[in-house]
Design a binder for these strands. Structure first.
Lengths: 236, 236
DNA sequence: CCTAAAACATGACAAAAATCATGTATAAGG
DNA sequence: CCTTATACATGATTTTTGTCATGTTTTAGG
């Protein structure tokens, strides 16, 4: 875990126009820039663990992170996928609770840590940022509620198709324009869909047989997006 | 829909210590009190509909409201149950989107409406309230994520038991101390659990046979809460 | 009070999905 | 490079859940 204080400044960060912080006042951004601590995490490493107390928030500069819950029987449920520009760890911090999910790095990821006190004080003094934060929370809540409805009402085939599209929306394609730009195990995909690993494997094979996707180890290529959308049966 | 402007003032409202607004500055509460419009809605009436644009937020003074989504195939999914002191309609307003859910009154309910502009301006000028709002959003997000995990991982029997406990947490018991203080149809319970109505009916009968609940039309009495908790298989 | 509609209940059946078992491929470590 | 563990794959089977059918009860409205 390499440690560096100012490899990037918030003022020159690639994500400065996309993250929530973009609406913060300049003076606060300067302060955040001074106090932040940046780290690089390797694949499989943990930013924080479910059950522990938050000390601040994490801002992803570059990389990919999964946020997952452990179900009562120990099964992982992936509740969010994060990328550069995304902030995480704010939920527990705002509620004043322990983390309810773990953040695990999917590939080498550069992250800035912003201490709790600073984050809270900036939020309390910068109405613009607070408002952006509320919007972000609202959006997350909306997404969670839609996901909830689909989980309750849609068959697994549709949910898997939807999940593939969601992965594409989140991480996009590689240079070839068709390969999903992330490597997830079948088990992780299953934990995203909310199903058994075998079901996911089976359905992916079916999608392949139907010519919608191509599978090459963990590489997934989307061959017919339209058909995938149709399979997902999305109205909204 | 009876119309009255100041049947209750925010300063004397029963909910003034429990709602999010309790942390707002006095001056803003006074302003809200002036601009608010109160109404009484009858059972089955709609506060707002999925797909329409928000004009403000609703603050429940007394009564019960369900917030539900329509799934892609038209099936209702109840995503929240609300009671006195709860605020609703803020999600769409903050995201600047149409309502993603409908709010339908479960029994005669008294509601105050606070216009959009006022709500936003108060939020932007009252950091304390903004912070409370963020906490509320965080809590909702947390609940949604837990529900998501359970929906993905738990069998219907456990989810029904959990739902009954959830209803009890939300609306409590009647004077007798065992009857759930709300009347929901079997279909509504099913739409809360995320299952078919018949499955809910069947399982409720089983719960009755097992002596955990007593059923009397729409009245549900919890006879053995501990066993219900065990049935729900809750660890958290 | 009567009638129609809606809600509730239950059995039979079908479909969906999970689990179990087993084998193969792939990746990681000595 | 070989060995071992892990991930992937697929068939068989069981369990869970949904759907359909049908009857009964309750509720709402005239």
């Amino acid at each position: 875990m390499t440690h560096f204080h100012d490899a990037t400044t918030c003022q020159s960060c690639d994500q400065r126009f996309t993250s929530v912080f973009c609406k913060a006042k300049q003076e606060f951004i300067a302060e955040i820039n001074e106090q932040k601590v940046c780290n690089v995490y390797k694949k499989g490493q943990t930013l924080f663990n479910e059950g522990s107390y938050p000390f601040g928030v994490y801002c992803i500069n570059e990389g990919k992170v999964k946020l997952s819950h452990l179900g009562d029987d120990g099964k992982e449920q992936i509740i969010r996928l994060l990328r550069g520009g995304d902030v995480l760890g704010y939920r527990a911090l705002l509620s004043g609770e322990r983390y309810s999910a773990s953040a695990i790095v999917l590939e080498d990821t550069q992250v800035c840590f912003i201490p709790k006190e600073l984050f809270i004080s900036v939020l309390k003094n910068d109405a613009g940022l607070a408002f952006e934060m509320m919007k972000l929370l609202s959006d997350e809540l909306h997404k969670a509620e839609v996901k909830l409805t689909h989980l309750a009402q849609k068959p697994i085939r549709e949910r898997l198709a939807e999940t593939l599209l969601f992965i594409k929306e989140t991480y996009g394609y590689e240079a070839d324009g068709i390969t999903l730009n992330v490597r997830l195990s079948r088990e992780e995909i299953a934990n995203l869909v909310g199903t058994a690993t075998e079901s996911t494997i089976r359905l992916l094979s079916e999608f392949k047989k139907d010519g919608m996707v191509e599978l090459e180890g963990k590489k997934i290529k989307i061959l017919r997006q339209k058909e995938l959308i149709r399979t997902a049966n999305l109205q909204d």
